[in-house]
């Protein structure tokens, strides 16, 4: 039985006349321990999809099952990493994680909690920044805190909503490695949403493109069975990697242009000449006055 299952999920926003169907008939199943990446253009409804799974919003039709149970709201079984980090700026790194740990593990003693928090901060290599506020951290460090916070509640599935797209390429590379390493330790289910095909190939077991919205649906899936650990520098030279990458990108461009062709409407332009403002001629005015 798949751990996460979406059955004919549709979601639209707005009132009747301005209703926009963002997602249409999404069917997806993720096995336990699998690392799935969903790749798509920006604005194709990726964040909507992950908010649905997370329980922040609810589908108009269809159902979402996590571990066989219907999603009725956010829960500690799903840890989420937001694109904009969503750290509380008035709390330190430690306190941000403490807020989560206090809520999810109320029965732990004070020292157990402290140990738990420090383990996860250590895991993302942030021990020196323990007492710092988010404003004093770089983007990569902020996202590390967010990763630690999501993992500290010990979720069954880790949801990542474009976690690295706000970071520079070098930081992104190291964080990709770190997240995969952490995931590799206990192989829990992970769902990554991204706009970067390379990121998907490096991190995931399976890539599914999301066709651009409105009425976004999932495209055909690509299996990725490169051996782990995948190292960016060596995998870059692998012809298999190049082939797969080109295949996915071509597919994405194809579905993108399909959408554009379908959307094309011929607008008839009115036959109008623009009225240009005339220059005011002072001299002529003076002449007429004399006359």
């Amino acid at each position: 039985m798949p751990y996460l299952e979406l059955k004919n999920v549709s979601k639209s926003f707005g009132a009747d006349s301005e209703k926009i169907e963002v997602l249409k008939d999404i069917n997806l199943s993720v096995e336990k321990g699998e690392f799935l990446a969903i790749v798509g253009f920006s604005g194709s409804g990726k964040s909507t999809l992950i908010n649905l799974i997370n329980g922040l919003i609810f589908p108009d039709s269809g159902e979402i099952l996590v571990d066989g149970k219907k999603v009725t709201g956010p829960g500690p079984d799903r840890g989420i990493i937001f694109q904009n980090y969503s750290l509380l700026p008035w709390l330190t790194v430690y306190q941000n994680i403490q807020l989560a740990v206090d809520e999810i593990f109320p029965h732990l003693s004070k020292s157990e909690k402290e140990e738990h928090i420090k383990t996860y901060i250590e895991m993302v290599n942030l021990t020196p920044a323990l007492e710092k506020k988010p404003a004093e951290l770089s983007g990569g460090m902020k996202q590390r805190v967010s990763v630690a916070r999501a993992l500290a509640i010990n979720p069954e599935i880790l949801l990542m909503d474009e976690p690295l797209s706000a970071l520079d390429a070098l930081t992104r590379g190291t964080l990709q490695d770190e997240i995969v390493q952490i995931w590799d330790k206990d192989r829990k289910t992970a769902l990554l949403i991204t706009n970067d095909v390379d990121e998907g190939i490096i991190m995931a077991d399976r890539i599914i493109p999301l066709k651009p919205g409105p009425k976004a649906t999932l495209g055909k899936e690509f299996k990725i069975d490169f051996e782990r650990p995948r190292i960016m520098t060596s995998i870059n030279k692998n012809p298999e990697f190049k082939k797969l990458r080109n295949e996915i990108i071509e597919y994405l461009i194809e579905i993108g242009s399909e959408r554009r062709v379908n959307d094309q409407v011929n607008y008839e332009l009115p036959n109008l000449k623009p009225i240009m403002p005339k220059r005011f001629n002072w001299k002529r005015k003076k002449v007429t006055e004399k006359v």
Partner: peptide, 15 residues
């Protein structure tokens, strides 16, 4: 996004 954090962590109304 701060409210989302409180929703995801399922904080009580007082917290």
């Amino acid at each position: 996004s701060y409210l989302n954090v409180s929703k995801v962590l399922r904080l009580g109304i007082g917290k």
